[in-house]
Write a protein that binds this DNA or RNA. Structure first.
Lengths: 212, 212
DNA sequence: CTATAAAGGTGAACGTGTTCACTTAAAGAA
DNA sequence: TTCTTTAAGTGAACACGTTCACCTTTATAG
């Protein structure tokens, strides 16, 4: 019997507290040992909770990783979105957002790789969390493109949806490609992304004006 | 004592035969039950081989899948490469190759998804097999682009390496994106790929000539 | 207050991928 | 041939993710 929460909501509070405890331990252990080398039993022991309890709070070990990184990732995204400057080009703003994300992934490339893998391939349900962030991301790019059209950066005939997907493709492939390198450097990832954006912007077909 | 191979190479032959037996069973079971729902024990039983034997032939269950699909995939790739017509544009040839691959993946989308996932994220060693195919793929695209430059389809200033990577990015992201749908249709995947190639070809920036 | 229902918490037990000490048989040396 | 070495083959044992029947505690009904 605890006096801090004398209401009829002790259970709900306990639940949240337990969840937080588990997440804290999970985060620390994942960061320390990596995903595969961290056992659910170790997380249970570290958070002083029964093994089964963890699975009352999280669908599986993957969901645990997603939850452990979710808050930081969401904060990174939100911060990046807020830093969008409307006087800058769509491209500059996009690169800035990508830059922030790459910096975040660089904190722990190994964990990031696992997270990205799960986001891209997870079966059915728990992907919702990451899908939301993807939708946000695509939505923001869409907005940037619209602004870009207004300021003559981008041609009117371009389809925002398709171009947003194009940007996202390059962002994600560059990320995966660089996460597979022995070391992940946000700078080289950005350079690679810029190279692809060059192509997306200028196109590759011969044009009447540039047939030298 | 078998009379068919009386040489001093019985062991080598036995080994190959055992390997083939395992692969045959693995292929059938994977196709029937899917990757996760097929146990290594079931493969061992079906191929009438000890459990440990499988791991003398394959690093792990993932390698088993890669090996099971490798030959078909290699054949698909080779066939697609041979169908390249030099009188067609680089884009048409690329789309044709992608089309063949998408058709192959469509045979068993679930297995394909697992295979692609492993190819993109496998740790360290066994990825070699798939990496080879990737190198081939990139190499062929590179060649197509060079031809494309000769026939004025693609501007000289384009960097083949970067553009080949660009093509590959769209190919792979489209594949993953479509494999995550409830049903995988090569046709809709191709449509999506074409949409992205449109962007890559024409570019999105406003040009002096197209400022309407 | 008591009785009942609901929900959090628990760890033994299970299934499965993977390892390893050992057996067996082929290849090579004497 | 006979002995030695090498490697294929094997399944018991292990580690870990996951499940589930059960317990305990809180919430709710009477």
């Amino acid at each position: 019997m605890d006096i801090t929460v004398p209401k009829g909501k002790r259970k709900a509070f306990q639940r949240l507290e337990t969840r937080a405890l588990i997440l804290e331990s999970a985060k620390a252990l994942f960061a320390d040992k990596g995903f595969e080398r961290t056992t659910v039993r170790a997380i249970a022991a570290s958070s002083e909770v029964g093994l089964g309890t963890i699975f009352k709070h999280f669908e599986d070990k993957n969901a645990l990783l997603a939850a452990a990184l979710h808050d930081d990732l969401a904060a990174t995204l939100e911060r990046a979105f807020k830093e969008v400057k409307h006087e800058k080009t769509a491209r500059e703003n996009f690169i800035h957002i990508a830059s922030r994300l790459y910096q975040y992934y660089a904190v722990n490339p190994s964990l990031s790789k696992t997270l990205v893998q799960q986001a891209m391939f997870s079966k059915g349900k728990c992907q919702t969390v990451l899908d939301e962030q993807l939708s946000d991301f695509i939505g923001v790019i869409d907005g940037l493109l619209e602004k870009g059209k207004e300021k003559q950066e981008i041609k009117q005939s371009a389809d925002n949806r398709a171009v947003a997907f194009n940007f996202f493709s390059h962002y994600i492939i560059t990320l995966v490609s660089c996460l597979n390198q022995p070391t992940f450097s946000p700078e080289s990832a950005l350079a690679q992304l810029e190279e692809q954006l060059d192509i997306t912007y200028s196109g590759i077909e011969t044009t009447p004006g540039s047939k030298r």
